[in-house]
Design a binder for these strands. Structure first.
Lengths: 154, 154
DNA sequence: AAACACTATGCAAAAATATACAAAAATATT
DNA sequence: AATATTTTTGTATATTTTTGCATAGTGTTT
């Protein structure tokens, strides 16, 4: 129903911007905005929206929208390889990897891209690569794309 | 009190591993484990733990531990004093921290200064940051000073 | 249009949760 | 140790949330 959708999105907005401590309180705000519903309906709406009531810092409670797991999931899904992001800056190349994959990625680079990279340092999820002097980004990309498939589409 | 701490940690474990739909249900589990308390106390425990009751996929409800914002915040607070010295060299920035703080500092930078830093690698007490191409020291300082207060006074 | 399926909603009751208050337990202070 | 203070907890109760049931609206099929 049209009304429900509008209502849901207004609820979403209110919760995102205002501190609301109970369904009755939220109901009041909605009523002020011209919506006509009961607390029971609100309870169902909140359930459908997966809104949670969370203990607030001030000792009270506060309604919150769910953290966007979907976004995280989506990102996780498209991570078919270990490399997440790749950026150049001067003669340095930084590769962010999935957690824990940095050192194996670095090892791989040392092993297979020594024609364009003179050395790497790896942390937990980051590899810093030093490009060989005079090397172009294009050449480096070409070389690394052998084992970082996402690179080629840039 | 010793008992409370143990109880809290058991609650945490139960919630992390089991689907619990109500306080009474959780209370039952705790009683089975030998704890002796009432729903009122449980309600207070959950409030203190900032546990939330969230609508579950199956149409019911499920208690959940908070996404670790609080922990992040706490960490954020104590990190403000972690940086000891900061030096630039070309497009590289090196931050020395108090012993052991480098990786959390690096994490923070990755998280909050990605507008000016393309990546970091952390050792035990040193963070190497690669500045984004074309970025000025001033801009980097501006961005990092959000959580490294000593920076601003330079 | 009538019959049907389906969704949305209110009402009222039930269930779940939070809290005021008092007592007990733990901790700190003199 | 005695006293004061703070913390924890249970009891009873208030508040809040959820839900079963009945009804009304909407769209679909016959």
């Amino acid at each position: 129903m049209k009304n429900k959708n509008r209502r849901i999105s207004v609820i979403q907005e209110i919760i995102a911007t205002t501190k609301v401590g109970s369904q009755d309180e939220l109901l009041q705000l909605l009523t002020n905005k011209g919506f006509n519903l009961t607390q029971a309906t609100l309870s169902r709406d909140l359930k459908a929206m997966k809104v949670v009531k969370t203990p607030a810092v001030d000792g009270g409670y506060c309604y919150k929208l769910p953290a966007n797991d979907d976004q995280a999931d989506a990102q996780a899904a498209y991570l078919t390889s270990a490399a997440v992001t790749i950026d150049f800056s001067g003669n340095i190349l930084v590769i962010h990897t999935r957690a824990g994959y940095a050192s194996s990625m670095a090892y791989r680079i040392d092993d297979e891209a020594s024609d364009v990279i003179i050395g790497t340092v790896a942390g937990e999820d980051t590899v810093v690569c030093v490009m060989k002097e005079g090397m172009t980004k294009r050449a480096v990309i070409e070389s690394l794309s052998k084992f970082i498939p996402t690179l080629k589409k840039d």
